[in-house]
Design a protein around this nucleic acid. Sequence first.
DNA 1: ATTTGACCGATATTATTCAATTGGTCAAAT
DNA 2: ATTTGACCAATTGAATAATATCGGTCAAAT
Lengths: 223, 223
Amino acid sequence: MTKAINPEREARILEAATQLFVHYGYDKTTVNEIAHAAGVSKGVIYLHFDSKDDLFEALIRHETNAYVEAWMKRIESDANGGTISSMYRNSLYALNENPFMAAMFRKDSKVLGSYLHRMGGLFKSEQVQGTRMEFVQMMQSAGAIRSDLDAKVIAHIMNILAYGLVSMQGVVDPDCIPETADLIEGIADFMDRAITPADGGNRLAGKEILRQLIDQSKKDIER
Amino acid sequence: MTKAINPEREARILEAATQLFVHYGYDKTTVNEIAHAAGVSKGVIYLHFDSKDDLFEALIRHETNAYVEAWMKRIESDANGGTISSMYRNSLYALNENPFMAAMFRKDSKVLGSYLHRMGGLFKSEQVQGTRMEFVQMMQSAGAIRSDLDAKVIAHIMNILAYGLVSMQGVVDPDCIPETADLIEGIADFMDRAITPADGGNRLAGKEILRQLIDQSKKDIER
DNA sequence: ATTTGACCGATATTATTCAATTGGTCAAAT
DNA sequence: ATTTGACCAATTGAATAATATCGGTCAAAT
């Protein structure tokens, strides 16, 4: 659906929906509640979206975009921008600060509800982590990651650590979990030590590649 | 319960129970089925265990013991035994090869079923990962882990990686997951690069500390 | 002495019904 | 032209009852 009417209101709806979905989950959030929270009536929702599912998918696109944007912003304003460890660290901060994306990554059935099972449209589980391997490979050829490592393994370890970041509550004793910032910095430090080439890596190339991938990702989201 | 009668049969029962629990889960496995699979009648089960729960807890002790034993065995017969990366790597192999322990670590509700919610006895979520932080601290003071790192963070990263090892199926696209051995070696390599002191660390001390902790752990399990 | 499995009560499952809720529409109000 | 909310069909889920299953026991069999 591409109703270009009243984008400000559409944003308000998406914002309201995000919060409700994250808090109550897809199933337990009604279209009425979303409308009410956004300060409009139910009918208006259907002026913007074909169905609840359609709204949800718009929301996925919206949040994915916001996540990528936040990530990029962090990188741009990061002193040591180009290193993989900085890129990765910033992706973790961005992921951690976006509860909806975190839920998506976690495949949290509490939040995603019945949508998780149907899963027609997007959500081939690739939205957040899929391109990671290409990314690693590109970074390797650019000399930003040691090339003697298996790209598949590195990418997967990155996935595991990101997954762990947003999934360990409820798995281990809460006071075994460090302060979020400490953890992210620790993880980034690990990455740095483990995968940065001896010569320190090519920062500019790294940053440029990331920008490309993000632009690519944005286009993927549009359509 | 400490019926010392017929330990061979008890082992058979535990073995049968393990397989059934792992495959069908706690709730969907009946005492009858366990008895049948172990080649005894239901009554015999209650000669060895007070209740289904009691059997399950015996099983937790049994498997925890088996896991620790397997871990130790691997370490003993490991060329470069004392390094933390080797210890950690071997713990991952041991965890990965013990489906029940993996399920415990994962807090897999499919396997643990209703027991997970009641959770009276053991299972303060500490069985597999709890002591990890002490372990890291001891290793640090023994000079086997860089002491400028936050023990809590290291321990938690270790937990995340172990958790990821046994939890990523169903979260990411299956063919994003590397061969198990490749992954474990990759993780161990990460650990090695990130936390081994510049001087290579004190191997003998490390090995000794581990032995102590394992003995301790064994005693904890007994009672 | 040891083992068995029919038996029992409690719990869980299934079937069925029926009222309430929800996603989605659209005639009326603004 | 835009927005609303009463309205509808479909789905959900609460309530109930009927049924089956299962954990646990123990008198009888071995």
